[in-house]
């Protein structure tokens, strides 16, 4: 069996990883010991299933890897899935983890005298320029989006943009930066995603894996 014949599951680092691993363990998928070593330099890990490897990447890259078939399966939030809107990604299963929301936020003092219904043009800093643009377009608001890759909450205080579009879970980060939510765009959870061609051409390998994870996700 050639090495690239293995199935590859892409996971993103960080918060979602902690929530997704119990599901994988329950589904009988156990990565090698090195996976839990916080100082590891490895990016690709074997599992107890000789036909399945796990790779770790940034959340946005998980979607890209799966869209292009570099990874066959992955776990990604629907914030990332709708931002790219790749036609080659199926998201057959809501894992019910990584719950948060995508919102518009602005400084508390601005929010006090601001009426979002009156906006015609906004400038926002965001990791999600496509989602933001579509959201505002639906409301008839022209949006100028400044793409950032992290620390979005800094943007209003530094004068980059008065408003931001970002993920909010507890709201603590917003509060610490003097921001408040003014609009809700979408609820976010993590989904199991699958490459379209992989599901068609390797149905016998991929579908049983989806079914196993699906069972434990439903039980959880």
């Amino acid at each position: 069996m050639p090495a690239n014949d293995k199935l590859i599951l892409a996971l993103s680092n960080g918060r979602i990883l902690k929530e997704v691993m119990p599901l994988l363990y329950a589904a009988g998928i156990r990565p090698e010991a090195e996976f839990d070593n916080p100082d590891t330099r490895l990016l690709r890990f074997q599992t107890n299933d000789p036909r399945l490897d796990i790779v770790r990447a940034r959340a946005f890259d998980v979607a890209t890897l799966v869209a292009f078939g570099a990874a066959h399966l992955g776990v990604a939030g629907n914030d990332v899935i709708v931002e790219f809107d790749y036609s080659e990604i199926y998201a057959p299963l809501d894992l019910g983890i990584g719950k948060c929301r995508l919102s518009v936020a602005e400084p508390a003092d601005l929010a006090g005298r601001d009426d979002p219904r009156k906006w015609s043009h906004v400038r926002v800093a965001t990791k999600y320029p496509n989602v933001a643009r579509k959201h505002f377009a639906r409301r008839g608001v022209q949006a100028e989006c400044i793409k950032m890759n992290g620390a979005i909450e800094l943007a209003p205080a530094l004068g980059l943009a008065r408003r931001i579009v970002d993920l909010v879970s507890s709201g603590a980060t917003l509060k610490a930066n003097g921001l408040v939510e003014v609009e809700h765009i979408a609820d976010v959870t993590s989904k199991l995603i699958v490459n379209r061609a992989a599901l068609k051409t390797r149905h016998g390998d991929v579908q049983p894996l989806i079914d196993r994870i699906s069972e434990v996700a439903r039980a959880a």
């Binding site: 899935i81 036609s87 990604i89 199926y90 998201a91 057959p92 299963l93 809501d94 989904k191 699958v194 599901l199």
Partner: peptide
Amino acid sequence: LDRKDAAA
């Protein structure tokens, strides 16, 4: 349907 999300 396009995402094959049976639950949704």
